[in-house]
Design a binder for these strands. Structure first.
Lengths: 241, 241
DNA sequence: GTCAGTATATTGTCAGACAAGATACAAGCA
DNA sequence: TGCTTGTATCTTGTCTGACAATATACTGAC
């Protein structure tokens, strides 16, 4: 628990408004404040965190840009209904996984992955360039050398999937899958941390690479589905165990 | 005639930081400032718009929350690379369509729709509740009564599709399609405005409704694909003509 | 020629004040 | 009595001016 808490935020210096924004945002998405609730006044928040009102206001603007809150004079700052939240905002997804997200949410996430990523793989098989294939090939080799349980292996895995997305030549697809991928990465971490490395998906990855290289769209789709289904099963086992 | 033209622009009173944020944001996404460029200093922006520096800063925080910019002391405010932008943010999509977006972007959008919405329709056919079916049925009747070229018809169309999304019982899917839908609505408006009402998709909508009501997932997917392909053809014709 | 220190420009943060807007309550009128 | 109108006041919205922190660029020393 303390490990990533030390690795991600600490060393890099961030402005106060970013920190306050994250603190408030996490409190909201983890349910410590419910939709419809009114947050404490700006001066009160400022005193609680020991900062000025300007910083609080800048933090609140960042939250309202993500659809979390709405401020009105005399009313205060109200937490908007969940369907107004920009749930696919990568930062919001990251905040969601600060605490264990509700199972229903995780299920929705995998459902969405099963819709988007197989289609992306199929597109990549059609549109990939030689250069992108080379990147994928290199990443596959790296994944084989270091196992997925290592930092280097995880990095190679990310590079592999990033290359696939780039090969779709669709910037919206890249954005979407990047958001989802960043969120899923946290579950991956827990997965490989608490259970002992459930299964090394290197063989599936190789099969996916070959399908894309051979331009076999349906096969690429098929293998991707298998990868996601396995990941979902492992994740559920990790969260349950 | 409560058209969106009255609801969207100036008449509604909005805080200054929202307006400034939109002005700067539109200037960025429409390419008036390129990624890598440095925006004018905060004081300079404040003077140009005739407002205080606080307001400028709050506006900039909203832009940075959407991944558009990055501020550093002594450096200034730099426009981030396009792949850092949160393109699926509904506000950002709206800004994109303030000017004619690049054809490649529109193509990416329809490609994504073709991936997501047929899958959503199929899910809805499986999971719909009686209550949601009733809402869809009512919307269909409204669409038949008023034509799609009217404001009432557009509203009924929105309600119909919103009901389908809700029936998927997947909040991420709802979020995603709602963002896309909001963006596409602008193109729809232009489509029905400048060309002479290309084709009334009421029959396809009825077919989609029946497929969902009958629990026929594959058929629902099929009809949805047809709807989107038609919409894409009409849109391209409108943008080309 | 390389390195260290300083100058400087820009954002980051602070404090206090007043304006604007929205609710709620009280007062006035039919 | 019941409705409307006006006022009280609380919260966000906005302004002003100042100082701190920081990253580049230049300047000077070794």
């Amino acid at each position: 628990m303390q490990t990533w808490e030390a690795s991600v935020p600490a060393t890099k210096k961030e402005p106060s408004h970013v920190k306050i924004s994250r603190d408030l945002g996490v409190a909201i998405v983890t349910g410590q404040h419910q939709p419809g609730d009114i947050l404490p006044g700006e001066i009160e928040i400022a005193e609680k965190f020991g900062i000025s009102r300007s910083v609080v206001r800048e933090a609140l603007r960042m939250l309202s840009a993500r659809g979390l809150i709405e401020s009105k004079p005399k009313i205060g700052t109200r937490i908007k209904d969940r369907d107004s939240w920009h749930l696919l905002d990568p930062t919001l997804l990251e905040w969601m996984f600060e605490a264990a997200p509700p199972p229903k949410f995780v299920q929705s996430l995998f459902e969405l992955r099963l819709i988007v990523e197989p289609a992306a793989a199929e597109l990549a098989a059609k549109k990939k360039t030689a250069r992108q294939l080379a990147v994928m090939g290199h990443a596959i080799e790296e994944m084989a050398r270091y196992k997925l349980s290592t930092a280097e292996g995880q990095l190679a895995d990310q590079e592999f999937h990033a290359a696939i997305l780039e090969a779709t030549d669709n910037e919206l697809l890249v954005n979407l899958s990047a958001s989802i991928g960043a969120a899923v990465r946290w579950t991956t971490y827990f997965k490989y941390r608490q259970s002992k490395c459930p299964r090394d998906p290197i063989e599936e990855h190789r099969a996916l690479f070959e399908a894309i290289a051979g331009g076999d769209g349906p096969r690429a789709r098929e293998v991707t589905v298998e990868l996601i289904v396995n990941a979902e099963r492992d994740t559920q086992a990790a969260l349950a165990g």
